[in-house]
Write a protein that binds this DNA or RNA. Structure first.
Lengths: 333, 333
DNA sequence: GGTGGAAGCTGGAACGTTCCAGACTGTGCG
DNA sequence: CGCACAGTCTGGAACGTTCCAGCTTCCACC
C-alpha cells in the first residue's frame, strides 16, 4: 500500500545537485547566501527526489519546537470553545498548538507529561484542577499560562475572567428586573467557583439584599444542576444565578419537568456563554467569558515568555459581559 | 522566572547516576538488561533532574514516531467519549495518541495536515465528513482507519457500528411496548444517518407497520432535534427514534416545555449512549455504540497496518446494544 | 597592483537519542 | 579447573538537520 523506499534526505539532494548539504539546507530555508543558478538546480533536484525536510531532525538541531502545549478537558464544553479560539489565535504567530486531553482515565499529570515529551515551549492549561504547588513546579521548567482560573503565585501567568464582576452584572440585571430573592448555585471546588460566590455575596450586599442571600451546593455538570434545582423547588426564590451553563441546563431541565415557567416562576442566569447557552431552545441568559480575547492574550503571553519579552502584569483579567436571552424576566407574584 | 539552565538530557542523568548513557536509555524505555539496584538509582537521578526524554531525538534516531494521529470534532460529545477510550486503548500498545481537532474554524484537511507533519504512522478519523476520494488519497500515504462511518473503498479500514441493526433493536423494543405509530428523526447527511434511516424502514416493514413510517428531517444537534420536535407536535406519533442523543436532548427539551409527558405522551429513543444520555435527569433510552470495543479494534487495526500484519476483513462491524432507561414506556390511550 | 570585503560555497561539529558490538563479572557444569 | 553462558554494563556510531568557521573567487577602490 505504501512505497517502501527510504525518504530522500539533504544529503541525497546535495549529491544530485552536486553541492554540499549546507547549501541545500540554506536553499530549503529560503535563506540568502546561494547563487540564483545554484538555487534553481538545488530546488530542481529536491523536487525530482520528492524531498521534504524532516521536521524532527530540524527541530532537534535548532533546539526549538515552536509548539504551544494545550491541556484541556475533553468533556468540558467551554474548553471546546477555548480550543477552537486557541487554534485561531496561534495561526498567525508561527507557533503551533499541540493538544493533550484530560479524560476520566487520563489525569492532568499524564496529559502534561505527554506535552513535555514533545518539547513544547510553553504550556497553556485550561482551568487546571491541580494544586498551585504542582503548577509552580511545572513553571520552573517552562512558561506556564493558566487560563480561566486564578492562581496566586508569581511563577505562573494567568489570564482569566473577572468572575466576581460577572456575578455583579448578573445580580444587577436581576435586581433591575425587580428580583429580591435571588439564590446562587455554586461550583464547589471548581476553578472560579470561589470568586463567583464572593461576587454574588458582594452584589447582594451592595443592593442591601443580604438577608436574601442563599447559596445552594452545585457543581460543574447537568447532574449537579438538576440536584440543586430539586433542592430549590421546596422553597423557590424568584431568580437564581448558576455556576456555569452546563449546570444551568440541568436546572432548566428539572424546572421544565416540574412544570415551572422560566422566566415566569424562576429566572435563571448561567455562566460562560458556551455553545449550549446559545442554542435556540435553551436560549439562556448568561455571563459571557470573552474566549476570543482570553485565548489571544494567552497565546501572546506564552510567546512573550518564550521569547523573553518583558511582561507588565503577570495576571490579566478580562471583563465578562452579560448576555440577556430568554431565561430572565420580571418576577410574577 | 525560568531556570535558564538547559533541559536535562540522557547524558546528565547518566553522569548523576554514575552509569553510561546507554544504560539510562534502557531504563527509561523499561527494557530488560539493567540490575534492580542500578535501575532504581537511574530512575531516582532522572526524577531529581526532572528528566523527560526528548521525543524528537528519540524519533529521529529510531526512525519511527509510534504516533497514532486522531482527528476528532471538538464539539462532538460522542467523539469525546471515543477519544477517552482511544487513549485507554493505546496505553498498553507502545503507541501514543496525537490529537488534532476539527473546529468551526479548522477543517478536516487542516487537522489532517498537522498530523502528517508530525510523522504519525497511521490516522484514525472519527466520523469524517470529507468525500471518499480524499480519504483514498490520504490512504496512499499512510494507513487510514475510519471510525463510526462507513466507506466503500478497499483503501481504507473501517470500524463502525451496525447502525441498521441498532434501529431494529430500537423499533423492536418500542413495538414490544405496544407502539405502532413510531416516527424517526434522521441525521440528514451525517455519517451513519443513511443506514439508520434504512434500519428504521426495514424494521417497521418487518413488523408490518410500513404505513406508519414517518421520517422527519433532523440533524446532529440539539437545535435540529428541537426543530424536528416542533414539527412532530402537530400530529404526534406515540414514539420516536432519533438520530443521536444530542438531537434527542433537543426533542426532550421541547416536549418538556410543551408539557408533554415522556414516556407517557411520547417515548423517545436516542443513539450513541453518550455521556448525555446517562445523566440522571435525562435518563435516555438509547442505542449504545460500543465505544470501548470500537476504539480497541481501531487501534489494533492501525497497528496491524503499520506493522504489516495480515488483516482479515477490511471492515469491522460492531453490534450495538439497546440500553433501556426512562424515556420509553407503553403508549397511553 | 595590492588590499578589503562581499558573495558563494564547503566541511565538520553539534543536537539527544537508539542501536550494536563487545567487555566484564559471576555461576553452573562437565 | 576451565569453559560456556547469562546478566550487566560501556563506548561509539548512527539518524537528518542546522550552525559556525573558514575557504575560494572576484571585483571595486585607492
Amino acid at each position: 500500500m505504501r512505497s517502501a523506499e527510504r525518504r530522500a534526505t539533504l544529503a541525497d539532494v546535495a549529491a544530485r545537485a552536486g553541492v554540499s548539504k549546507s547549501l541545500v539546507s540554506l536553499v530549503m530555508r529560503h535563506e540568502p547566501g546561494a547563487g540564483t543558478e545554484t538555487r534553481r538546480r538545488v530546488l530542481e533536484a529536491a523536487d525530482e527526489l520528492g524531498y521534504h525536510p524532516d521536521s524532527r531532525a530540524r527541530l532537534l538541531r535548532s533546539g526549538r519546537s515552536r509548539l504551544l502545549g494545550v491541556v484541556f478537558g475533553i468533556q468540558h464544553d467551554f474548553h471546546g470553545d477555548l480550543v477552537t479560539d486557541l487554534y485561531a489565535a496561534a495561526r498567525e504567530t508561527g507557533y503551533e498548538v499541540a493538544l493533550s486531553a484530560v479524560t476520566p482515565g487520563r489525569d492532568e499529570r499524564e496529559a502534561t507529561a505527554g506535552l513535555l515529551q514533545d518539547r513544547c515551549e510553553a504550556l497553556i492549561l485550561l482551568g487546571p484542577q491541580q494544586p498551585t504547588a504542582s503548577l509552580v513546579r511545572l513553571a520552573t521548567r517552562l512558561p506556564v499560562i493558566v487560563l480561566a482560573r486564578g492562581v496566586r503565585h508569581a511563577a505562573v501567568d494567568v489570564v482569566r475572567t473577572a468572575d466576581a464582576e460577572g456575578l455583579h452584572q448578573a445580580v444587577d440585571h436581576l435586581v433591575q428586573l425587580g428580583h429580591r430573592r435571588i439564590a446562587h448555585i455554586d461550583g464547589g471546588r471548581a476553578p472560579g467557583a470561589a470568586e463567583r460566590r464572593r461576587g454574588y455575596r458582594d452584589a447582594l450586599r451592595g443592593h442591601g439584599l443580604d438577608r436574601y442571600a442563599r447559596i445552594v451546593p452545585g457543581g460543574l455538570t447537568e447532574e449537579d444542576g438538576a440536584a440543586a434545582a430539586r433542592v430549590l423547588l421546596d422553597d423557590p426564590p424568584t431568580a437564581v444565578t448558576v455556576f456555569n451553563d452546563r449546570c444551568a441546563t440541568g436546572v432548566l431541565d428539572v424546572l421544565a419537568r416540574h412544570g415551572r415557567q422560566v422566566p415566569g416562576d424562576l429566572s435563571v442566569v448561567g455562566y460562560d456563554d458556551s455553545r449550549l447557552a446559545r442554542l435556540a431552545h435553551v436560549d439562556l441568559t448568561t455571563i459571557a467569558q470573552d474566549a476570543g480575547t482570553m485565548t489571544r492574550l494567552a497565546v501572546r503571553r506564552a510567546i512573550d515568555r518564550i521569547e523573553g519579552t518583558a511582561v507588565a502584569r503577570r495576571e490579566v483579567v478580562v471583563p465578562p459581559r452579560l448576555v440577556v436571552r430568554g431565561t430572565t424576566g420580571p418576577p410574577i407574584h
